[in-house]
Design a binder for these strands. Structure first.
Lengths: 104, 104
DNA sequence: TTTTGTGATTAGAAAACTTAATCATATGAC
DNA sequence: GTCATATGATTAAGTTTTCTAATCACAAAA
């Protein structure tokens, strides 16, 4: 989830004021904030710049909480979860197993 | 400028193989790589994950490829990357291995 | 009450995206 | 040499997404 609402309200700004800075209509900015539509990469960078955060943070990617990893499948999330605190040797074994695929 | 070409060629992968992992056509991936079109935020995250870099780096906003993924170790990023497109049975085997030997 | 400021919503137009099919090349096998 | 295969680029058409002006609903202030 994109972090526009918290960033904007922290600065006590209206949707219209941020929209004007971004050169879009208030309706467009509202759509971004409510995830009805998505800003372009260029707009993401401009927003990150304006709010003084990284794009990773802006789009909720740099947060390490598990709930943010919705882009992963259930199996991938399970694997990632299990890798936390796992023995490095065991992790290497997993890497070896997964690397055995040769279908590039 | 999005850094897809260098990330893909470094790994000696074809456009078709990456496109398949991303569940898009080769033409679509080609458009991303040549900046004719842009991936969605969700797709950007999937690409960053697959190539093991931050979104900021992927889109050329940051020079550091490591920046915002410090919450994952190198091994974890490698494992996560390898799980993309891996056989579900292989993923289940990995889950079993990690579950059976990991201390809680 | 009237005005002002706010975020949400709508419909239609515009822009962007996706894809199958195809093209042009290059490489390797025979 | 010919043929087959693999690659990235391109096209055209359909689809999806995005954008905006206008408007709505609500709240607060004048």
């Amino acid at each position: 989830m994109i972090r526009l609402f918290e960033l904007r309200t922290e600065k006590e700004l209206s949707q219209r004021s941020v929209a004007k800075i971004m050169n879009v209509s208030q309706g467009t900015y509202n759509n971004w904030e409510n995830s009805n539509t998505q800003p372009s990469i260029e707009q993401l960078i401009a927003l990150a710049n304006f709010f003084g955060v990284s794009v990773d943070y802006l789009i909720g990617y740099s947060d390490s909480s598990e709930s943010d990893k919705n882009y992963l499948t259930e199996r991938q999330r399970e694997i990632l979860k299990l890798t936390y605190g796992a023995d490095p040797k065991l992790q290497d074994a997993v890497i070896t197993i997964l690397s055995s695929r040769t279908d590039k």
